[in-house]
Structures are given as C-alpha cells and as structure tokens.
C-alpha cells in the first residue's frame, strides 16, 4: 500500500461566477497509494467533488500538478486524458448517471464501446459481454441484464454504475457520494460492495459527507474551504 498511484500537489481551482472568481481549491495536496481506500470528507462547497473530478482528469486545475504513476495527468493533449478516463479511472456518481435508453448490460458496455472501433467491437464483443456479465454478477445484478434503469431501485442503479465504472478494469475507482442518494440500508450494501472491491485490490477514492460511510475507508481526508483540514494529504 506504500506505492503512490495518484498524487496531487498544490492544486488550485476557481470557478467564475459572473465577474467574481470563486476559489474552490486552494493548494490541495494529496497522495493515494495503490490499493488504498481513501475517503474525502467535507461540508458542502468544501471542494471535495472538484478535487475528485481533477484527480480523475474530468476537470482541469488552474494551478498545481496531478500525477498518475509519476506522469503528469495534464501534460499532453486532451485526448490523453480521455484515454485515461476510459481505461484508468472509473467514476461512480451520487445520482448514478445511467443512460436511460440503454439496458443494464448496455450501460456497463458503454466504456468498452468507447475504446473500440466498429470492427474492433465486432471482434471483441463476446469477450466484453462476458466481462460485463461477470462484473454485474460481482455486484449482484446478473438477473437484471435486460432491465432499463427506470425499472431498477436506487441501490440497483448504483450497483450498475459501479459495474460500469469497473467495466474496463480501472486502476482507480473514484466515487462521488455513492450513498448520498440512498437510504441507510442500501447505502450499507453499496459500501459492502466497495469494501469487497477494495479487499480484492481496487484503489478507491471516495467523496462523502457521512462519517459512517467514511469510516469504511482506510484513511479520511477532510477538506474545509478548499484546504485540507485534517488527515494526511
């Protein structure tokens, strides 16, 4: 657990609200080791989701660096970050964010389709389907493959989102308030899934404002006003 896989140093980020620049992150530095389960806590507006987005190359910092396995995430063209989001990071969001026109299996297959051409997809389709079914079985949804998101409960939707995030076997799973929209029992189920994944070696960075949820992690980092307030960054 000592090998640092993801490291942010002096990350600043502001949002422009009309003429006013609103600082969200003010020099945040954090390191995440391979196989670690880190919880990022903080009040609403503390910058925890923004930090998670920057760590997953979904957003770009104004200043500071983010390194994945020693390589600067934001050096090079934007297409490199697209590839990283597809193959290296897996995102789980508070509101699941599934594509409503697609069924469970198709939602899980979308990241695999992104990295394949039409010809490549035709060749590798069965392999991807097998992997997707395996992941869905892992999260306990093998009986719901052909259901549409609107036919699932909140917990099931979040499990589909986790399966989608795992579809391309990412190095780091980034979860933004994964239980924030669920009742406590379902939230515990989801944390059970994440705990199991972590025990199997999955590196996880999770944003939450719930101390009970954060307690499942190895380490808790607390943000306040865009700075790390407590915990080892």
């Amino acid at each position: 657990m000592s090998d640092v896989i993801l490291q942010a140093a002096g990350v600043h980020k502001s949002y422009q609200l009309g003429r006013v620049s609103l600082p969200v992150l003010r020099g945040v530095s954090i390191s995440i080791a391979c196989g670690e389960f880190v919880a990022i806590m903080g009040a609403s507006g503390s910058g925890k989701s923004t930090l998670l987005h920057i760590l997953g190359a979904l957003d770009v910092p104004d200043r500071g660096t983010v390194r994945f396995e020693g390589q600067d995430l934001f050096a090079g063209p934007a297409s490199r970050r697209d590839v990283l989001r597809n193959a290296t990071f897996g995102f789980v969001f508070q509101f699941y964010h599934l594509l409503p026109e697609l069924d469970v299996l198709e939602n899980v297959l979308v990241p695999c389709m992104v990295r394949r051409s039409v010809a490549g997809w035709i060749r590798a389709r069965s392999e991807h389907r097998r992997d997707a079914c395996r992941v869905l079985e892992q999260v306990g949804l093998s009986h719901r493959l052909r259901h549409k998101p609107n036919e699932l409960s909140g917990g099931e939707r979040q499990r589909v989102a986790i399966a989608r995030a795992l579809a391309n076997r990412p190095r780091v799973l980034l979860a933004d308030e994964p239980t924030g929209n669920l009742d406590s029992a379902t939230g515990r189920e989801i944390m059970g899934v994440l705990g199991t994944l972590n025990r199997q070696g999955q590196t996880i960075a999770m944003v939450t404002h719930d101390p009970q949820v954060a307690a499942c992690a190895h380490r808790i980092v607390t943000l306040e006003d865009g700075r790390i307030k407590s915990g080892r960054g």
Binding site: L58, R85, L99
Partner: peptide, 15 residues
C-alpha cells in the same frame, strides 16, 4: 447529462 456521462467514460468531445 448523457453527454457528461459518455465524456466521463472517456468519449472525446469530437466523438
């Protein structure tokens, strides 16, 4: 929102 989702799983803006 769908556009955001497919961007989050690695789709390029050109894609």
């Amino acid at each position: 929102r769908d556009i955001g989702i497919i961007r989050s799983v690695g789709a390029t803006s050109l894609g």
